[in-house]
Amino acid sequence: MVLSVSLADAECLDLSDIVNTDRYPLHDPDSPRLNDLVAACRAELAASGSAVLHDFLRPEALERARNEGRALAAKTYFSTRKVNAYFTADDPALSETDPRRIFMDRTSGFVTRDLIPADAIVHRIYVAQAMKRFVAACLGETRVWEYADPYAGLVQNVMPPGTEQPWHYDTNEFIVSMMTQQPTAGGDFEYCPNIRSPQGENYEGVGRVVRGETREAINVITLRPGDLQLFKGRFSLHRVTQVAGEVERHTAIFAYSQKPGVIGRLERTRQLYGRVSEAHLEAEQRLVRADSLVD
């Protein structure tokens, strides 16, 4: 199959040229196969906070996405810093064993949405109505929205050998991602399902994981190129282990929200992407927290 060059289209209801619709008939919302798939995803998310759809892309589309990702990697903004799981500053008033005082090395590499061409495979997937409809169904939502954030709605995460993402939470309740290039070794996704909740941080349990005292609560997933993952990362502590070998780990991250107009936090945006926009400055002034969690 020769892939045509199409621009990202928010009204797109059929991604059959790039998505493996034999397994994932996103174009047919009334299909019994799709209904069964959605039910299975909901069950996995409820049980473990994660659902992985293998071989989501057609082989030709995956090859193109891989090549596009390699070209985009040249635009990556890298930053290295010590962070805790909450992206907060140190508080000497707390015990030295408190997870808020456990700081880990984080090397972040991201290509932001404004740098990803409109005809890129990942951009077409992110904005398509077919994709948003499918994600909403899997999450049990009536509808999901693209981020209004000009940088963070769609990003490519780039992890060269020797880099890792330490334990952290997502600011959004859920995230959707797709690996486009697998590293030679390492780069596993590890997470602790629902280790905290809106009712409490569970600092004791989180501390044992962050300090390396236990692996009992940790689930491990080794993703492959073309795998789509739905993940509830607001309440599940997670990390990506250190990448090894000669090949970078590339993952597209599709950020959707349960309400329109979501824009990332100012300081976290500055840390991750090295810059902020006027939209971030305005959003910070209007900020009203949805819950009492630290980050």
Rank of each mutant, 00 (worst) to 15 (best):
A185P: 01
S4N: 15
L15F: 05
L287G: 05
I116R: 09
L15P: 06
R42W: 06
E146M: 12
S292H: 14
G226T: 00
R215M: 05
F231R: 10
A244W: 04
R81G: 09
G200V: 04
I121K: 12
A61E: 00
D28Y: 04
D119H: 13
T241M: 02
Y169I: 12
V135W: 03
G186N: 08
L228A: 03
E284A: 15
V127H: 09
A283T: 01
V5E: 15
R208A: 12
R265V: 06
D28L: 11
H168K: 11
K259S: 15
F189P: 02
L115F: 07
A93D: 11
V276D: 06
A290T: 12
D30P: 02
L115S: 14
K132M: 11
L293H: 02
P25D: 00
T184I: 04
N35C: 09
V294N: 13
E204V: 08
S79K: 04
Q258S: 15
A279I: 09
R268L: 14
E213I: 04
D22L: 05
A85V: 04
C41E: 07
D30F: 03
D119A: 12
E278M: 13
V19Y: 10
L287D: 14
T241F: 01
E204H: 10
L15V: 06
N157I: 11
V294G: 09
V288D: 13
A290S: 15
K259D: 13
A46K: 15
P183W: 01
T222I: 03
P193R: 03
L26A: 08
L293V: 03
K232F: 00
N67Q: 13
D28Q: 11
T142F: 10
A252C: 10
A65E: 08
T214L: 11
L57K: 01
T76V: 13
H123E: 07
T251Q: 03
N67V: 07
